[in-house]
Simulated assay, not measured.
Amino acid sequence: MNSLAAFTLATLALVAVPGPNLIHIITRSVQDGRRAGVVSALGVETGTLLHVLVAVCGLAAAITDHPLAFAVLRYAGAGYLAHLGVRALLRRPPLSTAQADDAEARPDRRRLLRVYRDAVLVNVLNPKVVLFFLAFLPHFVPTGLTPAQTRTHMLVLGTLFLAIALVFDLCYALAGAALADRLRGTPRRDRRLAYTTGGIHLGLAALVLT
């Protein structure tokens, strides 16, 4: 099996398992609807692209080699997830299902931009993703390449990873939107959903610090 095929199979196995990014996409899709879920998927994979570029340029190694920089990234990531969790807990749910459906049908551009920004930052500020790409991409690069060829090969692999992950992200976003139809409906259900979403993000914040 060549390195590209092995990389594709490894990527499929990894992205199929829900991690913090997928959980964020699902919760956003459940809470705010299909469009928000799709925008979150695009935001997460924008973050993936940034991680790939950081790994290709050698900045990922520089971050992990400096404990202070890595600690700042770790606490910033945990803090932002905690911020999203608290924001979800304090959010006022729609008074009715009709209002929720109306918000989904007429999405506010600023709201979607905020959804996109949240997803980008959730991914970019996750130090474990930095470590992942630093270890994962070079493992599938053939030996004997020049530095330029190595960077090009890593960029191709990173782009392939991004494309596969985006397909899975979109599937999870659509699944979350379908699940929302069953979870929403009454003020009590909406409040329970907000508590669940907030609790999940707070749990992810704690996970980043472990």
Rank of each mutant, 00 (worst) to 15 (best):
D181M: 14
V56A: 11
V72Q: 09
H24V: 14
P127V: 08
R184V: 03
A13D: 06
T97W: 15
H201G: 09
L193V: 05
A60C: 06
T64Y: 08
T152W: 14
G37D: 03
H66W: 09
R182C: 08
L42A: 02
L9A: 14
P187T: 04
Q99W: 07
V130Q: 02
A177N: 00
Y80R: 06
G185F: 03
A119Y: 13
L179V: 07
L113K: 10
L131A: 12
G19A: 06
P93F: 00
L155F: 06
N21S: 13
T210G: 15
A61W: 02
A82W: 15
A100S: 14
R28P: 10
G198C: 03
A16Q: 04
L84W: 04
D108S: 00
F7G: 08
D169P: 10
A71G: 11
G198M: 07
V38A: 05
L134Q: 11
I164R: 02
R109G: 02
P142R: 11
D101T: 00
L209Q: 09
H51K: 01
I23L: 11
L12Y: 00
R91V: 03
E45T: 04
G33I: 02
G199C: 07
L157M: 14
T27I: 02
V156G: 11
A119H: 12
G58A: 02
I63E: 09
L134W: 15
L145H: 05
P18Y: 04
L193G: 02
G43M: 01
V122R: 01
D118A: 12
T46R: 02
T159V: 13
A135N: 08
N2E: 07
N2C: 10
H83V: 11
A178E: 12
A135P: 09
A41Y: 06
R117S: 11
A194W: 02
L209A: 12
A105W: 00
I23E: 14
A205L: 04
R182W: 02
V115R: 03
L125Y: 01
G47L: 00
H139P: 10
L162M: 15
F168S: 12
E45S: 06
L170S: 05
D181N: 14
G43L: 04
L59R: 09
Q31R: 05
T150G: 06
A41G: 09
A100R: 10
T8I: 13
V141W: 04
A6K: 12
T8G: 03
M1R: 15
S96L: 00
Q31A: 05
Q31F: 04
A206L: 12
